[in-house]
Amino acid sequence: MYAKRGASVTAVDTRLDHLAIAARFATEPDEWAVAPRFNPVDRWYHRLHVADDYEVWLLTWLPGQGTEWHDHGGSAGAFHVFGGTLTEDTVSLTDGHAPRVTARELGEGAGRRFGSHHVHRMTNRGHRPAVSVHVYGPALTTMTKYRVGPESLEVLTVERAGAQW
């Protein structure tokens, strides 16, 4: 369990709300096990915390860095933008219609919850580096990567935790 400067965080406060967990970790960067790092080739990530029913990750994004379309293998979660700005693109499918992509820009202090069947991609489309805190519950075991086609989502790969990231 994560402790905030002498005050214990209880299960009632955080375990049911992934965004509350992400925001709480974001308020205490001095407690992070590592300082954020930036990789010029790809986004950097580090797992900060593991609990029985969730895990917390720290990610950094230089301008132009982002993810592919992906889901979280059945885990729900949330993310909180600690610094900079990130754009989240989400895709929705409706029978008989082409996939619809919606973009949402989230700046410092903003966050978002998502369910266990959420497909998205995230990108730093800004001019400054960005840092974000992500929470997944249960802990990630797989991530599926997709291609958005004219009529549907096409599975490209399924990556396993511990083996491919």
Rank of each mutant, 00 (worst) to 15 (best):
S152N: 06
A78S: 13
P63H: 05
L58T: 03
S132K: 09
E68I: 00
T14I: 01
Y146G: 05
A139R: 12
H18I: 12
I21L: 04
A103M: 14
G149H: 03
G77I: 06
D13Q: 14
H46L: 00
G74H: 03
P29Q: 07
F25S: 01
H127G: 08
H127W: 13
S116I: 10
G74Y: 07
T10E: 04
Y146M: 02
Y54F: 15
T123S: 15
G64Y: 04
T123N: 08
T141D: 06
G111D: 05
R24W: 10
N124Y: 08
T85H: 15
P138Y: 04
E28P: 03
T141S: 01
L19N: 02
F82L: 10
G107D: 07
A103Y: 05
A103T: 12
P63N: 01
T157F: 12
E151F: 01
H72W: 06
W165Y: 15
R125E: 13
L86T: 04
G107T: 07
Y54H: 14
G74L: 02
T157Y: 08
D30Y: 00
G64D: 01
G149Y: 01
T27W: 03
R15Q: 14
H97V: 09
S92Q: 02
F79T: 04
H70C: 12
A103R: 15
D53L: 10
S132C: 13
D17G: 05
R104I: 00
G64M: 05
A11P: 00
L153A: 05
A7W: 05
L153G: 10
A11G: 11
D71I: 11
R125H: 09
L153F: 01
G66Y: 00
V119P: 14
H70K: 09
A51E: 10
L93D: 08
H70D: 08
P36R: 06
T10M: 09
T94D: 01
A78H: 09
Y54D: 02
T142Q: 09
D52A: 11
H117D: 15
G109I: 00
E55T: 12
G109N: 00
T102F: 01
R5M: 03
E55I: 13
H46C: 05
E154V: 10
G107N: 02
F25I: 08
P99Q: 06
R160S: 14
S152R: 15
T94M: 09
H117Y: 08
D17P: 05
A51I: 01
A163S: 11
Y54M: 04
P63G: 03
R121D: 10
L153S: 02
L16K: 14
G96L: 11
M1I: 03
K145S: 15
V133F: 02
E159N: 12
D52L: 02
N39F: 07
H72T: 11
A51L: 04
N39P: 00
A161T: 09
S8Q: 09
R125C: 06
H97W: 00
T144K: 07
H46K: 12
S116Q: 11
D71G: 12
L93P: 09
Y54P: 03
R121C: 11
R113C: 06
A7S: 13
G126F: 04
T67K: 13
E108H: 02
Y54A: 13
A78E: 08
T27Q: 08
V133N: 07
M1G: 07
Q164K: 03
L106W: 01
G6A: 14
V135C: 12
R15G: 06
